[in-house]
């Protein structure tokens, strides 16, 4: 019993130390952002009061209302089209007879490991030649392509988990394949699709390099891109305002995480294992 207790104390201590290490940078910039504007805090003291002025200043000066709106547009486009296309493809791969599954999968596997640093140059010149750079299209279309390999692998594994008997019964009653997908399989897939939605939301929201390259117009910047310009701008050199801006950008994903953390974690951990 004593031995058990000692082990538990050690386990809790490790987790608490780990949690402090993780949380310290967050509280550090939160305190900084909440500090009195103009007053330099040393970073090792707790602020004397709570001031929201830095948040207001960051919001109005950094153009974050535009940035956050743009990010939501891009996320909506990427997530909805990716899920639609990947569901159809994963269904065909898992439940329909397809010749040449292995080479098609190998092709998708390339996209799963590919550092997309290597393709953005070509994407930029192609988009520019069609006058699409600096538009939502230049952000949405490539990110659909980049999200599809993971999404197909993820959804295919969930299709696999649905027993064959379900669709066979419907087949005997004369239902077509599309009807079977919509009426019988998709209702079973809702949890998997939800988790995928959460992951795609997060990845698309946080995407940076593509936006950095495609967007020149300040009004078209996504939230992380607006943040990087804001943080690099000497005129707003005050670290407290930059900290407040960083919190604005992190907030939508953080709020989602508070409610759906299990989906985030299980999605990324099992998703990584399945890959």
């Amino acid at each position: 019993m004593n031995y058990q207790n000692r082990e538990k104390v050690i386990a809790h201590s490790i987790f608490i130390i780990g949690s402090i290490v993780v949380l310290y940078p967050f509280f550090s910039i939160l305190f900084l952002a909440l500090s009195e504007p103009g007053k330099r805090i040393s970073g090792f003291t707790v602020p004397s009061g709570i001031y929201f002025d830095n948040f207001v200043k960051a919001w109005t000066d950094g153009g974050f209302s535009n940035g956050i709106f743009n990010s939501f547009v891009v996320v909506f486009g990427v997530v909805s089209v990716t899920i639609f296309c990947s569901t159809l493809a994963a269904y065909a791969f898992e439940k329909l007879d397809i010749f040449g599954v292995t080479p098609l999968f190998a092709l998708l596997l390339v996209g799963l490991v590919l550092p997309y640093e290597s393709i953005v140059i070509s994407l930029y010149y192609t988009m520019k030649s069609y006058n699409l750079s600096n538009t939502y299209w230049s952000l949405i279309l490539p990110q659909i392509g980049l999200s599809i390999p993971f999404s197909i692998f993820w959804l295919r594994a969930s299709f696999k988990a649905i027993p064959k008997s379900l669709s066979e019964a419907a087949m005997i009653e004369g239902a077509g394949r599309f009807t079977i997908l919509i009426k019988i399989l998709i209702p079973q897939m809702i949890p998997a699709i939800l988790t995928l939605t959460v992951l795609l939301f997060m990845w698309t929201w946080n995407e940076f390099l593509l936006a950095l390259i495609m967007i020149q117009d300040a009004d078209m910047r996504t939230a992380p891109l607006a943040l990087s310009y804001f943080a690099g701008n000497k005129r707003y050199g005050d670290p407290a305002i930059t900290a407040a801006a960083a919190i604005w950008v992190a907030l939508p994903v953080l709020i989602m995480y508070v409610f759906l953390q299990r989906r985030f974690i299980s999605g990324m951990v099992t998703g990584a294992v399945k890959e």
């Binding site: 987790f15 970073g43 994903v253």
Partner: peptide
């Protein structure tokens, strides 16, 4: 949930926190 937190954030946000 706490230990996983750094995984969900934009690297830009993480970078700004650590720059400070």
């Amino acid at each position: 949930a706490i230990l996983f937190l750094p995984q969900i954030l934009s690297m830009i946000v993480v970078g700004i926190a650590w720059r400070w």
